[in-house]
Amino acid sequence: MPPLAGWTLTVTGFVGKSPALDHVMRLLVNDFFIPLVICLILLVLWLGYSDRTKRDRVQRIVMNAAVAIGISALVVKLINNFVNPWPRPFLVNDSVIRESARRAAETIFYFPHDPTFPSNGATIAFAAATGVWLGHRKAGAILYALATLWAVARFYAGVHFFVDVVGGAAIGILTALFISKIFMPRVEPFPTWVMKLCRLLYLA
C-alpha cells in the first residue's frame, strides 16, 4: 500500500452522496474530455495569433509542450516496465479501501487494469501545462487548472491513489522542464526544420 492510502477512503466516501458532483466527475474523469480540451487549447494557441513573430514564438511553445507530452508518456511506459509498486485502489488487500474504491470506480468510471503508478493522465496533462506555462502564463494557468481537475477526478473515482497522481504530476512537470529548457534548444536545427515543413504544408 502506498503512503497516504487512507485518503482514498476519505475521498471515495463522497461518491454517491451528491449525484450532481458525481455527474461532473463522470465527465472530468473521462479518457477523452480533458485531454481533448487541452489539445484544442494547444490548437487555439497554434493558430490564434495574427502577429507573425508572436505566432512563431507561441508555436514553438506548443511544439515543446507536444514533445513533452510524448516523452512523458514514454517515461511512464518505461517506469511501468520496471516498477509496479502497488495495485489499483480497488484491488488492494485492505478490504475497507478496496470496497470503497470499487464502489467509486463502478459509479464514476470503469476498472482499468494497467499499472496505477504513476497516473498516466496526470503525467501528460501536467507535462502539457508546464510546457505551455513556461512561455505563455495565462494559457499555462488554464491548463494547470484542467490538469488538476483531471487528477482530482481520477483520485475521486478510486482508480488512483493520491501518490499516483502527485507522482504523475511531478514526472510530467520535470519532463516538460527538461524538454523546454535543455532538450529542445540542444536539438536545433531540428525544431526549426519541423516548423519550416509545417509552413510549407500551410500548417504553421
Binding site: 481533448l36 484544442l40 490548437l43 487555439v44 493558430l47 490564434g48 495569433y49 495574427s50 505566432r55
Partner: peptide, 15 residues
C-alpha cells in the same frame, strides 16, 4: 470540434 476552433480562431488571427 477542431472545425469549430478553426472558425473561431480565424477571426483574431485574421486568417
Amino acid at each position: 470540434s477542431s472545425l469549430g476552433v478553426y472558425q473561431i480562431v480565424a477571426i483574431p488571427a485574421k486568417l
